[in-house]
Amino acid sequence: MSRSFSGLVAVITGASSGIGRATAHAFARQGATVILAARRAERLEDVARECESLGGRALPVPTDVTREEQVQDLARQTLDRFGRIDVWFNNAGVGVFGRFKDIPSDVWRRVIDINLFGYVHGARAVMPVFRRQGHGVLINNASIVGRLAKPDSTAYATSKFAIRGFAEALRQEVLDQPDIHICTILPAVIDTPFFHHAANFSHHNVRAAPPVYTPEKVARTVLGLVQRPRAEVIIGGAGKFGAVLKRVAPSLGTRLNARALNYGFLSNEPSGETTGTLFEPARDRFTVRGDWRKGPNNGGVPLLATLALIGIPLALAAWKQPSLPMHRRR
C-alpha cells in the first residue's frame, strides 16, 4: 500500500477464515488495529496471534452477527478499547446450494439472517459512530452474485442483491457527510472454505467453478477502498466480463450464466443433504484458503474461457444487430 495504516482501527466480521482472515492479515501488515469477529472463539485467537506477529494489534470478539445485541457489543468493546472505528468490513456470510423447491424454509431464512441482517446489524452499530466522528468507511461484501445471480442459489443471490440495494440507500443517506463512505465489493469465485462450509440440498457435491481468485486479491481491494473509496468494485476478470455481458446482452447473459454456473459449481458426484455452517460453525482445518486452486482443473468448466468463447461472438452479434421499428416487431 502507498502509506501506513498505523493507528487505523478496523472491525472485520467473518474474520475466522477466508476473505475475512486474509483481510485481517493485510491490515495487520500495514500496522493497523483489527477487531476480529466470528462465532469461533478459538479460531479468532489464532487469527489475533497471526495479526500481531505481522505487526498489527488485534482484539478477538466472538460474535454471532444474527444477534444484534452481540454486534452492538462488538462496536462498544472496540470504542472502549481504542476510542474510535475507522473501518467496518461487513463480511460474514454463508451459502446454500439446491433448487428453490428443495431448500427448506428455515435454511432459506437463516441465509437471509446471516448475509443480510448481519450487515444491517453492523451498519446500525457503526453508522452512529461514523456520524459522531465525522468520518468512516463501511465496506460490504456482496459478491458478483449480487449483480448476476446464479442457479441453485436463490437464497444467497437474494441476500447479495439486497446488500447492494441496502448499501446504495445508505450511500444516499450520508450525502451530507463527505467523509463517510459506503463501499460494496463484488468478488467473483474466491479460493476460500466457503464451498466446504455451504449448506447443500442439490444432491451433488459442491465445488468452486474456475477461474478461482485468491482471497489476498480481495484483501488488497478492501485496503485500497480505505484509501480511495468507491461505490462498487468487481473483483476478478470473470465477474467483470459477466457484468459487461449482462449489460449489453441481458437475455444471453442470463442463459449463459445459468448453464455455465450450474455445471461449474455442482459435480456429478452425489452428496447427502447438509446445513453446513448455517447453524453451527465448522470444525475443520481450513483457514484462509479452501484448496480450490490446486491441480490443472479444480472442477467444472473454466468459466472465463467459456464466457469468452461463447459470449463474445454472441454479444457482438446482438450489439450489431439493428433494432426493428416497433410495428415490424409486432
Rank of each mutant, 00 (worst) to 15 (best):
R3I: 07
R3D: 09
F5Q: 09
G7T: 06
G7I: 13
I12V: 13
I19W: 04
G20R: 01
A24W: 02
Q30E: 03
G31I: 05
A37G: 09
D46Y: 09
E52P: 12
S53G: 09
S53R: 06
R57Y: 10
L59N: 03
P60V: 02
P62Q: 04
V65D: 12
R67M: 09
R67T: 08
E69I: 07
Q77K: 07
T78M: 01
T78I: 13
R81K: 14
R84T: 15
I85R: 07
I85D: 00
D86Y: 03
D86E: 11
F89P: 02
N90W: 06
N91K: 11
I114A: 08
A123K: 11
A123H: 04
F130E: 00
L148M: 06
K150F: 13
D152N: 14
T158L: 09
S159H: 00
A162C: 14
F166Y: 15
A169T: 13
R171C: 03
L175I: 11
Q177P: 07
Q177N: 08
I190G: 00
H197Y: 09
N200Y: 05
E216S: 07
V218Y: 05
V226Q: 06
G237N: 08
A238M: 04
G242P: 11
V248F: 12
N257A: 10
N257W: 04
A258L: 03
A260L: 01
L266Q: 06
G276A: 09
E280K: 07
F286L: 08
T287V: 13
G299M: 08
L303D: 05
L303V: 15
T306G: 04
G311W: 01
G311V: 06
A318N: 14
K320G: 15
K320S: 14
P322Q: 11
R330H: 12
